[in-house]
């Protein structure tokens, strides 16, 4: 039996997928691989890590496909899974920050020199070069400097085009908080772009 999955709505695709139709899974993948990857990539800013996380997000979604609640949009659901994975990853990876000017307790110039980061410009691999070009530019840099919560809301709203309600559901935060985050995120972006 063959179906034209491209003309099938998300909710129906999920039902077909839950029945074990491989084609339905493939169609969901082709619909969401780009937006899901985009979001994760702009959050972690590393292609390899972003692809691994995106793959994990799809596998988790597929394995839980029969727990999907059709009351909500499929896109909200998969973005919620992707966002949780990404935030987990960023939290785990976070290390104590070392100032460019040396450790906070370094008082003498020698100690400062010893503990400060050496900023080198190593030979870039071709992938790194592509990556840097992709996320280069003032806006991408300004987005990259936002704190995680602000970055997610801006990306979900202005690149993925989710509604405020959907963002609240994806991030599991109240609607008022979404508005506040968005407001502050845009104010920060405006400031950074004006400085640049």
């Amino acid at each position: 039996m063959s179906l034209n999955y491209q003309s099938v709505e998300d909710a129906e695709l999920v039902t077909l997928a839950a029945q074990g139709r491989e084609g339905a899974y493939r169609e969901l993948l082709s619909r969401y691989q780009r937006p899901v990857f985009s979001l994760i990539y702009r959050m972690v800013r590393n292609r390899t890590v972003a692809e691994d996380l995106a793959q994990e997000a799809f596998i988790r979604t597929f394995n839980a496909i029969d727990t999907y609640n059709p009351k909500y949009k499929f896109s909200s659901w998969i973005f919620k899974i992707a966002n949780n994975l990404t935030i987990d990853h960023l939290r785990k990876r976070r290390v104590p920050t070392v100032s460019m000017h040396g450790a906070p307790d370094a008082v003498t110039p020698e100690a400062q020199a010893r503990t400060s980061l050496v900023v080198r410009s190593p030979g870039e691999s071709p992938e790194e070069y592509v990556e840097n070009r992709e996320l280069a530019g003032q806006i991408e840099a300004a987005i990259g400097e936002l704190r995680e919560e602000y970055r997610v809301v801006v990306l979900l709203r202005h690149i993925e085009g989710h509604t405020y309600d959907e963002i609240a559901r994806i991030m599991e935060i109240p609607l008022g908080t979404v508005k506040t985050y968005l407001h502050r995120a845009r104010a920060e972006l405006k400031l950074r772009l004006a400085e640049a």
């Binding site: 899974y25 493939r26 993948l29 691989q33 780009r34 995106a54 793959q55 690149i159």
Partner: peptide, 24 residues
């Protein structure tokens, strides 16, 4: 907002979907 909305959607490397299906 208009500037933000011009940012492109970034695609994963070719064959991503195949790799996900295979791994799954």
């Amino acid at each position: 907002i208009a500037t933000l909305e011009t940012l492109p959607s970034l695609a994963p490397a070719a064959g991503f979907a195949e790799r996900v299906m295979a791994r799954w």
